[in-house]
C-alpha cells in the first residue's frame, strides 16, 4: 500500500521575498515556483534536466529547477527571471536579448537569460570550459566559449545565432 501523501512546510526565499509553502516533498522547485508561487516565467520543457528552460539562479548559481526538490532548496536564495528585472528596469542581459532579437517563440528565453547571467558570473571568476585551451588562464569569452558554456540551454526555434550575439554584447 502506498503511504498517504503528506505535505510539509517549506520556507523558500524567491526574488528577495520569503514564502511559507505547504508542499508535498516530491515537489520540484520548478513546480513550486509555477504552481504554488505563480511565478510562471520559469518554463518546463523536458522536466529531466535536458533542455535548460527551467534554469533559475540558486545562491547565484545557475541551476535546473526541474531536478531540484523544493525542500532541498530551503535555506537558499532563489532568483527567477521575474527577479532579474522587468519592463521598467530590465537586467542588462534581458535588454541585450531584446536588442538583438534573441528569440522566436520565447519559450526557452527565461532559461537562456538566467543561464547567461550565471554563466557570465562563472566566466568573471575565471572558470574555464572544455574548449578553453589553457585551463589555468580562461581569457576572453569568444563565440566558441559562449556556445559551449550555454550548451545546457536548448532553443527549439534555433535562435542560437542571436542568443550568442546578445550574450557577447553584454560581455563586451
Amino acid at each position: 500500500m502506498t503511504p498517504p501523501v503528506t505535505t510539509q512546510r517549506v520556507d523558500l526565499e524567491v526574488n528577495g521575498v520569503q514564502h511559507a509553502c505547504d508542499l508535498d516533498p516530491r515537489t520540484t522547485l520548478l513546480d513550486a515556483l509555477r504552481e504554488h508561487l505563480d511565478l510562471t516565467g520559469s518554463k518546463k520543457g523536458c522536466d529531466h534536466g535536458q533542455c535548460g528552460a527551467c534554469t533559475v539562479l540558486v545562491d547565484g548559481r545557475r541551476t535546473n529547477s526541474c531536478l531540484l526538490l523544493a525542500v532541498a532548496a530551503e535555506g537558499s536564495t532563489v532568483t527567477t527571471i521575474e527577479g532579474l528585472g522587468g519592463p521598467d528596469l530590465p537586467h542588462p542581459v534581458q535588454e541585450a536579448f531584446l536588442e538583438h532579437d534573441a528569440y522566436q517563440c520565447g519559450y526557452c528565453t527565461p532559461g537562456q537569460i538566467c543561464s547567461a547571467v550565471g554563466m557570465l558570473d562563472e566566466a568573471a571568476q575565471g572558470w574555464p570550459s572544455v574548449v578553453t585551451d589553457d585551463l589555468t588562464d580562461a581569457g576572453e569569452l569568444g563565440t566558441d566559449e559562449i556556445r559551449e558554456r550555454m550548451s545546457g540551454n536548448i532553443c527549439r526555434c534555433g535562435a542560437y545565432v542571436n542568443i550568442v550575439t546578445a550574450i557577447a554584447a553584454v560581455d563586451a
Binding site: 541551476t63 570550459s129 545546457g152
Partner: peptide, 11 residues
C-alpha cells in the same frame, strides 16, 4: 568540464 551542462555541473 566535458560532462553535462553548466547548470548540471553546478548541482
Amino acid at each position: 568540464l566535458s560532462a553535462a551542462s553548466g547548470q548540471i555541473r553546478n548541482m
